[in-house]
């Protein structure tokens, strides 16, 4: 597997096109177009502008959380963040309590939610890099601690609610008919692109993910980079939590749980290898949109829940089989 950042300069136009067509991003984009067509066929009006904006809003919540998952996975070392769902709930509850319906406190709410989850993420990172716990169990343990902490702290009763301006930001058109959250997502896509392609940190994340030993030998701070990506993953989950409470108006202690596994799926079907070092955020964005679209198309089918799940699981495996295959005996 080669890094997509390398330009295939030695290839003829034909094989370059073939490479492009077989790339995860192209497949995810194709899946998006096919799903939109299918949805429109099954239920006319599915691909209408306001419907698409509604779908993109849901995809944005997943996509923003998946940005953090993307960074953690890119930095390698079996990196994965299973605590993202719990951190979204954490962020949502902090934001809800800080705002408590007041527009004036939105900035404080965002700062408090992202700050707290950034710190929790750093603890994940330190557990992985200093104590050297496997990321899977470190973040799984953190998930249990956050979920348990939230239950103890709130006694199971949700508290706090969203400010009206925040709800408007998520649900009302702000510019060119697009709600603010989509503009925020667009800004995040640009920022992630700049971070990964134009900054020293971005190059370090790819280098550490591709070959930690080589990265250490050239003097990159492997542990610091890996610790930082868990912190960023936490902060992005916290931000998602703020948007989630804006989307729903109020929160409950497991509001974020449903995002945990989909963030991993969006990253993987977007072409980032779970082994680290290859991939990028644009693919993850396409993966998140494809995932939300697929679920939406399945909802328009008049099927029982089990039938929808059967098709969902089957499609997921098919997407994986199309380009997620591991070649040779390596992993």
């Amino acid at each position: 597997m080669t890094a997509p950042s390398l330009s295939p300069s030695g290839l003829s136009t034909g094989s370059r096109l073939a490479t492009l067509a077989a790339s995860p991003l192209a497949l995810a984009l194709m899946a998006i177009i096919v799903l939109l067509g299918l949805g429109e066929m099954l239920s006319p009006g599915f691909a209408r502008g306001d419907q698409i904006i509604r779908l993109l809003t849901v995809a944005a919540l997943l996509g923003i959380a998946a940005a953090g998952q993307n960074l953690v996975i890119l930095a390698g070392g079996e990196g994965i963040d299973l605590s993202i769902g719990a951190q979204i709930s954490f962020g949502a509850i902090i934001a809800g309590n800080v705002m408590n319906g007041s527009d004036a406190a939105i900035a404080h709410a965002i700062l408090a939610a992202c700050g707290a989850t950034f710190l929790v993420g750093l603890v994940n990172g330190l557990g992985v890099t200093l104590v050297r716990l496997p990321p899977l169990v470190m973040t799984l343990g953190m998930m249990a601690i956050i979920q348990g902490g939230l239950v103890v702290f709130s006694q199971g009763i949700p508290s706090g609610n969203a400010a009206p301006a925040l709800m408007g930001f998520i649900n009302q058109p702000a510019l060119l008919g697009l709600p603010g959250i989509l503009l925020a997502w667009a800004v995040l896509i640009v920022l992630m692109g700049l971070l990964l392609r134009r900054t020293a940190l971005g190059f370090a994340i790819y280098a550490v993910g591709a070959n930690a030993r080589a990265a250490r030998l050239v003097g990159l701070p492997v542990r610091a980079v890996r610790t930082l990506v868990y912190g960023l993953s936490g902060a992005l989950a916290g931000l998602t939590g703020v948007f989630v409470i804006g989307y729903t108006g109020n929160s409950f202690i497991s509001v974020g749980d449903q995002y945990m596994l989909p963030t991993i799926i969006a990253v993987v079907i977007g072409g980032t290898s779970l082994a680290g070092g290859t991939g990028g955020y644009v693919g993850t964005v396409a993966g998140a949109i494809a995932l939300v679209l697929l679920q939406s198309v399945l909802t328009t089918l008049h099927l029982d829940f089990w039938g929808r799940q059967l098709i969902f699981g089957g499609t997921l495996l098919l997407l994986l089989a199309l380009y997620g295959r591991q070649t040779g005996p390596r992993v």
Binding site: I264, Q309, G313, L316, L317, R325, Q326
Partner: peptide, 15 residues
């Protein structure tokens, strides 16, 4: 087939 274990078993779990 060579699918990634974590995501593949999550997919089969849904099935």
């Amino acid at each position: 087939v060579g699918l990634q274990p974590m995501v593949a078993t999550f997919g089969t779990a849904i099935l």
